[in-house]
Protein backbone atom coordinates (compact mmCIF):
# COMPACT_ATOMS: atom_id res chain seq x y z
CA UNK A 1 0.00 0.00 0.00
CA UNK A 2 1.57 3.23 -1.07
CA UNK A 3 2.76 5.66 1.56
CA UNK A 4 1.24 8.62 -0.27
CA UNK A 5 -2.25 7.14 -0.07
CA UNK A 6 -1.92 6.30 3.60
CA UNK A 7 -0.63 9.76 4.50
CA UNK A 8 -3.41 11.30 2.45
CA UNK A 9 -5.97 9.14 4.28
CA UNK A 10 -4.52 10.25 7.61
CA UNK A 11 -4.70 13.88 6.57
CA UNK A 12 -8.39 13.50 5.77
CA UNK A 13 -8.85 12.10 9.26
CA UNK A 14 -6.78 14.77 10.99
CA UNK A 15 -8.35 17.73 9.27
CA UNK A 16 -11.96 16.58 9.18
CA UNK A 17 -12.48 17.19 12.91
CA UNK A 18 -12.14 20.41 14.80
CA UNK A 19 -9.79 19.74 17.72
CA UNK A 20 -6.56 19.43 15.67
CA UNK A 21 -7.31 22.80 14.08
CA UNK A 22 -7.74 24.37 17.49
CA UNK A 23 -4.62 22.78 18.92
CA UNK A 24 -2.50 23.80 15.95
CA UNK A 25 -3.89 27.30 15.89
CA UNK A 26 -3.20 27.77 19.61
CA UNK A 27 0.23 26.19 19.20
CA UNK A 28 1.09 29.00 16.77
CA UNK A 29 -0.75 31.85 18.48
CA UNK A 30 0.42 31.30 22.08
CA UNK A 31 4.19 31.48 21.42
CA UNK A 32 3.69 34.55 19.22
CA UNK A 33 1.50 36.07 21.93
CA UNK A 34 4.16 35.36 24.51
CA UNK A 35 6.83 36.97 22.32
CA UNK A 36 4.57 40.01 21.89
CA UNK A 37 4.05 40.36 25.64
CA UNK A 38 7.77 39.93 26.30
CA UNK A 39 8.80 42.52 23.75
CA UNK A 40 6.16 45.05 24.76
CA UNK A 41 7.27 44.99 28.38
CA UNK A 42 10.97 45.04 27.51
CA UNK A 43 12.71 48.43 27.86
CA UNK A 44 12.60 50.10 24.45
CA UNK A 45 16.26 51.07 24.45
CA UNK A 46 17.80 47.75 25.51
CA UNK A 47 18.16 45.06 22.84
CA UNK A 48 16.34 41.76 23.40
CA UNK A 49 17.92 38.51 22.23
CA UNK A 50 16.43 35.98 19.85
CA UNK A 51 16.50 33.30 22.56
CA UNK A 52 14.39 35.45 24.86
CA UNK A 53 11.88 36.07 22.11
CA UNK A 54 11.51 32.31 21.57
CA UNK A 55 10.86 31.44 25.23
CA UNK A 56 7.16 30.80 24.59
CA UNK A 57 7.90 27.80 22.36
CA UNK A 58 6.98 25.58 25.33
CA UNK A 59 3.34 26.63 25.05
CA UNK A 60 3.35 25.53 21.43
CA UNK A 61 5.12 22.31 22.30
CA UNK A 62 2.50 21.36 24.91
CA UNK A 63 -0.30 21.91 22.41
CA UNK A 64 1.57 19.92 19.78
CA UNK A 65 1.88 17.09 22.31
CA UNK A 66 -1.87 17.31 22.94
CA UNK A 67 -2.70 17.41 19.22
CA UNK A 68 -0.48 14.43 18.39
CA UNK A 69 -1.66 12.30 21.31
CA UNK A 70 -5.33 13.01 20.54
CA UNK A 71 -4.80 12.04 16.90
CA UNK A 72 -4.21 8.53 18.24
CA UNK A 73 -6.36 8.29 21.36
CA UNK A 74 -9.57 9.61 19.75
CA UNK A 75 -9.21 6.83 17.18
CA UNK A 76 -9.19 4.30 19.97
CA UNK A 77 -12.05 6.02 21.76
CA UNK A 78 -14.35 6.08 18.73
CA UNK A 79 -13.35 2.68 17.37
CA UNK A 80 -11.98 4.07 14.10
CA UNK A 81 -8.62 2.48 14.92
CA UNK A 82 -10.30 -0.87 14.26
CA UNK A 83 -11.58 0.41 10.93
CA UNK A 84 -8.06 1.62 10.15
CA UNK A 85 -6.54 -1.76 10.98
CA UNK A 86 -9.24 -3.45 8.93
CA UNK A 87 -8.29 -1.32 5.95
CA UNK A 88 -4.53 -1.64 6.58
CA UNK A 89 -4.04 -4.94 8.39
CA UNK A 90 -0.25 -4.54 8.49
CA UNK A 91 -0.92 -1.77 11.06
CA UNK A 92 2.65 -0.44 11.13
CA UNK A 93 2.39 1.25 7.74
CA UNK A 94 -0.83 3.02 8.75
CA UNK A 95 0.65 4.09 12.08
CA UNK A 96 3.87 5.28 10.45
CA UNK A 97 1.81 7.30 7.98
CA UNK A 98 -0.07 8.86 10.87
CA UNK A 99 3.17 9.63 12.69
CA UNK A 100 4.71 11.16 9.57
CA UNK A 101 1.69 13.37 8.98
CA UNK A 102 1.28 14.50 12.56
CA UNK A 103 5.01 15.12 12.96
CA UNK A 104 5.13 17.02 9.67
CA UNK A 105 2.24 19.24 10.71
CA UNK A 106 3.92 19.78 14.09
CA UNK A 107 7.13 20.84 12.35
CA UNK A 108 5.26 23.35 10.19
CA UNK A 109 3.45 24.69 13.23
CA UNK A 110 6.77 25.08 15.03
CA UNK A 111 8.29 26.92 12.09
CA UNK A 112 5.35 29.30 11.84
CA UNK A 113 5.35 29.90 15.61
CA UNK A 114 9.10 30.57 15.71
CA UNK A 115 9.24 32.80 12.64
CA UNK A 116 6.06 34.56 13.76
CA UNK A 117 7.56 35.27 17.17
CA UNK A 118 10.72 36.60 15.56
CA UNK A 119 8.78 38.70 13.05
CA UNK A 120 6.50 40.27 15.65
CA UNK A 121 9.45 41.00 17.91
CA UNK A 122 11.52 42.69 15.20
CA UNK A 123 8.59 44.89 14.18
CA UNK A 124 7.70 45.86 17.75
CA UNK A 125 11.28 46.26 18.95
CA UNK A 126 13.34 47.87 16.21
CA UNK A 127 16.28 48.63 18.54
CA UNK A 128 17.14 44.94 18.77
CA UNK A 129 18.98 43.51 15.86
CA UNK A 130 16.87 40.36 15.63
CA UNK A 131 17.93 38.06 12.85
CA UNK A 132 19.23 34.65 11.91
CA UNK A 133 22.85 35.68 11.61
CA UNK A 134 24.59 33.44 14.11
CA UNK A 135 24.43 29.68 14.56
CA UNK A 136 22.82 30.17 17.97
CA UNK A 137 20.09 32.34 16.50
CA UNK A 138 19.45 29.89 13.68
CA UNK A 139 19.08 27.05 16.15
CA UNK A 140 16.85 29.02 18.49
CA UNK A 141 14.41 29.83 15.68
CA UNK A 142 14.54 27.13 13.00
CA UNK A 143 15.33 24.51 15.63
CA UNK A 144 11.79 24.78 16.99
CA UNK A 145 10.60 22.82 13.94
CA UNK A 146 12.60 19.61 14.58
CA UNK A 147 11.87 19.85 18.31
CA UNK A 148 8.14 19.93 17.56
CA UNK A 149 8.53 17.08 15.04
CA UNK A 150 10.11 14.74 17.58
CA UNK A 151 7.78 15.90 20.36
CA UNK A 152 4.90 14.83 18.15
CA UNK A 153 6.55 11.44 17.58
CA UNK A 154 6.82 10.95 21.35
CA UNK A 155 3.17 11.92 21.79
CA UNK A 156 2.00 9.51 19.08
CA UNK A 157 3.99 6.72 20.72
CA UNK A 158 2.58 7.48 24.17
CA UNK A 159 -0.92 7.67 22.68
CA UNK A 160 -0.45 4.23 21.10
CA UNK A 161 0.78 2.74 24.34
CA UNK A 162 -1.80 4.32 26.67
CA UNK A 163 -4.73 4.42 24.16
CA UNK A 164 -6.69 6.71 26.44
CA UNK A 165 -6.84 10.51 26.19
CA UNK A 166 -6.78 11.54 29.84
CA UNK A 167 -3.98 9.15 30.78
CA UNK A 168 -1.84 9.97 27.77
CA UNK A 169 -2.24 13.72 28.21
CA UNK A 170 -1.53 13.63 31.94
CA UNK A 171 1.68 11.71 31.24
CA UNK A 172 2.72 13.92 28.33
CA UNK A 173 2.14 17.17 30.20
CA UNK A 174 3.37 16.22 33.66
CA UNK A 175 6.54 14.62 32.34
CA UNK A 176 8.17 17.60 30.60
CA UNK A 177 6.69 20.27 32.85
CA UNK A 178 7.08 18.69 36.27
CA UNK A 179 9.16 15.52 36.34
CA UNK A 180 12.06 16.79 34.25
CA UNK A 181 12.46 20.13 36.08
CA UNK A 182 12.00 18.53 39.51
CA UNK A 183 14.70 15.94 38.89
CA UNK A 184 17.31 18.65 39.43
CA UNK A 185 16.10 19.02 43.03
CA UNK A 186 17.56 15.60 43.85
CA UNK A 187 20.83 16.38 45.62
CA UNK A 188 24.18 15.17 44.24
CA UNK A 189 22.90 13.29 41.15
CA UNK A 190 19.88 15.42 40.17
CA UNK A 191 21.63 17.81 37.85
CA UNK A 192 23.60 15.05 36.22
CA UNK A 193 20.48 13.00 35.52
CA UNK A 194 18.54 16.02 34.36
CA UNK A 195 20.56 16.64 31.24
CA UNK A 196 19.64 13.19 30.02
CA UNK A 197 15.95 13.99 30.30
CA UNK A 198 14.64 14.19 26.71
CA UNK A 199 12.80 17.52 26.87
CA UNK A 200 15.65 19.14 28.81
CA UNK A 201 17.94 17.97 26.01
CA UNK A 202 15.60 19.54 23.44
CA UNK A 203 15.68 22.77 25.42
CA UNK A 204 19.45 22.62 25.50
CA UNK A 205 19.49 22.26 21.72
CA UNK A 206 17.34 25.36 21.31
CA UNK A 207 18.85 27.59 23.95
CA UNK A 208 22.43 26.35 24.24
CA UNK A 209 24.19 28.08 27.14
CA UNK A 210 20.98 29.65 28.34
CA UNK A 211 19.29 26.29 28.98
CA UNK A 212 18.90 25.02 32.53
CA UNK A 213 21.79 22.58 32.27
CA UNK A 214 24.74 23.91 34.23
CA UNK A 215 27.47 21.70 32.84
CA UNK A 216 26.31 20.00 29.63
CA UNK A 217 27.93 16.81 28.39
CA UNK A 218 26.23 16.93 24.99
CA UNK A 219 26.68 19.65 22.42
CA UNK A 220 23.42 21.28 21.29
CA UNK A 221 23.43 19.28 18.05
CA UNK A 222 24.04 16.04 19.92
CA UNK A 223 21.26 16.96 22.34
CA UNK A 224 18.83 17.11 19.41
CA UNK A 225 20.12 13.78 18.11
CA UNK A 226 19.54 12.32 21.58
CA UNK A 227 15.99 13.73 21.71
CA UNK A 228 15.30 12.26 18.25
CA UNK A 229 16.71 8.87 19.26
CA UNK A 230 14.50 8.74 22.34
CA UNK A 231 11.40 9.59 20.31
CA UNK A 232 12.13 7.08 17.55
CA UNK A 233 12.95 4.38 20.11
CA UNK A 234 9.68 4.99 21.91
CA UNK A 235 7.79 4.86 18.61
CA UNK A 236 9.41 1.54 17.69
CA UNK A 237 8.28 0.06 21.01
CA UNK A 238 4.76 1.45 20.49
CA UNK A 239 4.54 -0.03 16.97
CA UNK A 240 5.58 -3.46 18.17
CA UNK A 241 3.02 -3.33 20.98
CA UNK A 242 0.25 -2.08 18.66
CA UNK A 243 0.91 -4.90 16.20
CA UNK A 244 0.70 -7.56 18.85
CA UNK A 245 -2.26 -6.28 20.78
CA UNK A 246 -5.94 -6.94 20.03
CA UNK A 247 -7.36 -3.83 18.38
Amino acid sequence: MSAVNLISAESIKLFSTRSPWWCNLLAMVLPVGFATAAVLSWPTDVPISVTEVQMGYQFGMMLVLVMAALAVTTEYRFGTMRTTFQAVPGRSSALLAKTALVAGVAGLVGLVAALGSLGVASVLHPVSDLGLGTADELRAVLGVAPVFVFSAVIAVAVGLLVRQSAGALALLLVWPMLVEPLVSVIPTVGEHIQQWMPFVAADHFLRGERSMIADPVLSPAMALAYFAAVSVGLLAVALVVARRRDA
Binding site: S19, M62, V66, T73, S165, A166, L169, A170, L173, V174
Partner: peptide
Protein backbone atom coordinates in the same frame (compact mmCIF):
# COMPACT_ATOMS: atom_id res chain seq x y z
CA UNK B 1 -8.81 16.15 26.96
CA UNK B 2 -9.37 19.89 27.13
CA UNK B 3 -9.95 19.99 30.89
CA UNK B 4 -6.91 17.84 31.71
CA UNK B 5 -4.75 20.02 29.48
CA UNK B 6 -5.95 23.19 31.18
CA UNK B 7 -5.48 22.00 34.76
CA UNK B 8 -1.97 20.75 33.98
Amino acid sequence: AAAVTVVL
